[in-house]
Simulated scan of single mutants.
Amino acid sequence: MFMFDKPILQIKNLSKQYGEGCSYCQQEDAKLERNFCPVCKTVYACKNISIDLHRGEILGIVGESGSGKSTLMKCLYFDEEITTGEGYLTDYFNGKENIFTQSGQQKRFIRNSLLGMVYQNPMLGLKMDFSSISNIAEKQIAAGNRNVEQMVDRSNELLDKVNISIKRSKEPPKNFSGGMQQRVQIAKALSSNPPILLLDEVTTGLDLSVQAAVLDLIKTIQRVMQISMIVVSHDLAVIRMLADRTVVMLNGQIIEEGLTDQILEDPQHAYTQQLVYSLL
């Protein structure tokens, strides 16, 4: 149903390179070593990435380590500056302003109010020595909330939603297991009611039973809150469980995209075929 709506997020021709580039690698038919220029050593982490995300949809991005998917997420959350490209959010000036050309202040507003991020490494998303409730309140303060009672209530509500006992709300995340830390991150990301949640390899390094619990939580949140998500993983089993549509990345570029069932049942690109068959 969401496929016919105007996308909540549109990314057009996003590129991120590390290095200046040279006359060799900037040729249309340049032969790079994966996404690396052998002449000037420039790395093309993302090259002409275009994606649409619809309201209430989970978009999966899958690819091996170094394919550019985590760099893309960092660019979307303004952790990294893009090299070129455009991005439009329906909930920001009705999708008429390129989010990547906005001022630092406006980018902070978008990041704090319209996006939520869950990092692979919880240390990037949480202050490990602060209490869990303080971590969640921090996002609300950044989004402009100054009502302490309201923030405490919201933080406790979210901890309950991610199955962490209120009794442990004053404990710092460093006391928690990896799975619990990810759940605190999810609660923090949701605390300002963003329409879009970005999840970067959130189950990597977790035990299988813990992975299953985190994935089930993500699916429940999406169903109940109708929040749009971009889920990045190198694990096609994670994408199979979560994603409505899937984008496959290799060497900084999109090589295949479509409905997740279609990608899994009839992969067209040789790399996607290899990924799918390794899952069987």
Rank of each mutant, 00 (worst) to 15 (best):
G87C: 13
E86R: 12
G68A: 03
T83C: 06
E86A: 14
I99Q: 04
E86G: 00
L59W: 04
V43N: 09
I61T: 07
I99G: 04
E86K: 14
D52Y: 07
L59A: 01
C46Q: 03
C40V: 11
R55H: 11
L72A: 04
I49P: 02
S67M: 10
G85L: 12
V62M: 07
S70M: 12
G85T: 08
D52G: 05
K74E: 04
K96P: 05
K96Y: 00
S70A: 12
G56T: 10
C75Y: 06
G66V: 12
G60F: 11
N48M: 07
L72R: 09
F78A: 09
H54R: 15
D91N: 12
S70G: 11
Y77M: 13
E57C: 04
L89C: 10
N94F: 05
S67I: 07
T42P: 01
A45V: 01
I51G: 01
T42C: 01
L76V: 02
L53V: 11
G95P: 11
I58L: 13
K69M: 06
C75H: 09
V62K: 01
A45L: 02
N94T: 07
T71E: 07
G60D: 04
M73R: 11
I49T: 03
S65A: 07
T42W: 04
I61Y: 04
L53M: 08
K69D: 08
L72V: 04
T90F: 05
E97Y: 08
E97G: 00
G87T: 15
C75V: 14
G87N: 06
N98F: 11
L72H: 07
C46V: 15
S70N: 13
D79H: 14
I58K: 08
K74L: 13
D52K: 15
I49M: 10
E57R: 07
K74Y: 13
V43M: 07
E80M: 10
T83K: 12
N94C: 06
Y88S: 12
V43S: 11
I61K: 05
H54Q: 15
Y77V: 08
S65R: 05
M73D: 00
M73N: 02
C40F: 02
N98P: 03
T90D: 06
I58P: 00
G68L: 04
T71H: 09
V62S: 08
G66M: 04
G60A: 11
P38T: 10
I61D: 00
P38Y: 08
Y92E: 01
Y44P: 02
T90V: 03
Y88M: 14
N98D: 15
I49V: 15
I51Q: 07
D52C: 11
M73A: 15
L89H: 05
A45T: 07
L89Q: 06
E64S: 11
E97H: 09
C40G: 08
F93K: 15
K74H: 14
F93T: 04
